[in-house]
Design a protein around this nucleic acid. Structure first.
Length: 153
DNA sequence: GCCAACGTTGGC
DNA sequence: GCCAACGTTGGC
C-alpha cells in the first residue's frame, strides 16, 4: 500500500515539537474523536509522514515533521480513572480508542505560520485551512505535504 | 475572551 | 432516528 501523509495538531503548551524531539517517540494518545481514531486505526502505516501542527499557539502553524513508527494499539489512557480522557464505556476486551506511535523526524528550519499557508494559492485544498475544520488528525496530499516541507526550509 | 462551527448526547 | 442543547475546538 502506498504511503499516506498527515497533519496532526497539538497544543505546544501541552506537547510541542520540542517535546517530541526530546523523547524522539510518542504514542499519540488521548484522541477522543472517531474520525481521527479511524485514521489512526485503519489508514496509518509505519513510515507515513506527518506534519506536526501547533494549534492554539501564537502564532499557530506547522512546526516540524514526524513519521508513524508503530501501528495503532488500544490507547491505555482510556482505562486510567485518574485521567480526563478516561472512558467508562471502554474495557480491555473492548477498547474504544486507539493510538499510533510517532517518531520525531525534524524541526522545520522556518516555522510555517497559518497566515503563510493561507497566502499560498497552491494550498487552497488543504483541510486545515477550511473554515470550521477542527479535526485533530487530517489527511494531506503528497503534493501539499512536500510543498509545506519546502516552505519550512 | 469571543464566538462560529462542529461533534456528541440524550430525551422523545 | 430526529434534533435541540450542550461542550469543545481553535483562530482571531
Amino acid at each position: 500500500m502506498s504511503k499516506h501523509y498527515w497533519l496532526m495538531k497539538t497544543e505546544p503548551s501541552v506537547f510541542s515539537i520540542d517535546d517530541l524531539q526530546k523523547q524522539q517517540k510518542a504514542w499519540w494518545d488521548s484522541i477522543r474523536n472517531y474520525q481521527a481514531r479511524n485514521f489512526m486505526m485503519k489508514d496509518m502505516q509505519v513510515g507515513d509522514e506527518i506534519l506536526i501542527y501547533h494549534s492554539s499557539a501564537e502564532p499557530p502553524g506547522v512546526a516540524g515533521l514526524a513519521k508513524v513508527s508503530q501501528l495503532a494499539k488500544p490507547d491505555p489512557v482510556q482505562f486510567d480513572k485518574t485521567s480526563d480522557y478516561f472512558d467508562p464505556k471502554a474495557s480491555k476486551e473492548k477498547p474504544i480508542w486507539f493510538c499510533v506511535q510517532i517518531e520525531y523526524v525534524s524541526k522545520l528550519k522556518n516555522f510555517v505560520p497559518i497566515e503563510q499557508l493561507r497566502a499560498e494559492p497552491k494550498l487552497k485544498d488543504l483541510l486545515a485551512l477550511k473554515r470550521g475544520q477542527r479535526l485533530s488528525i487530517q489527511p494531506v496530499s503528497e503534493k501539499d505535504f512536500n510543498f509545506i516541507k519546502k516552505l519550512g526550509g
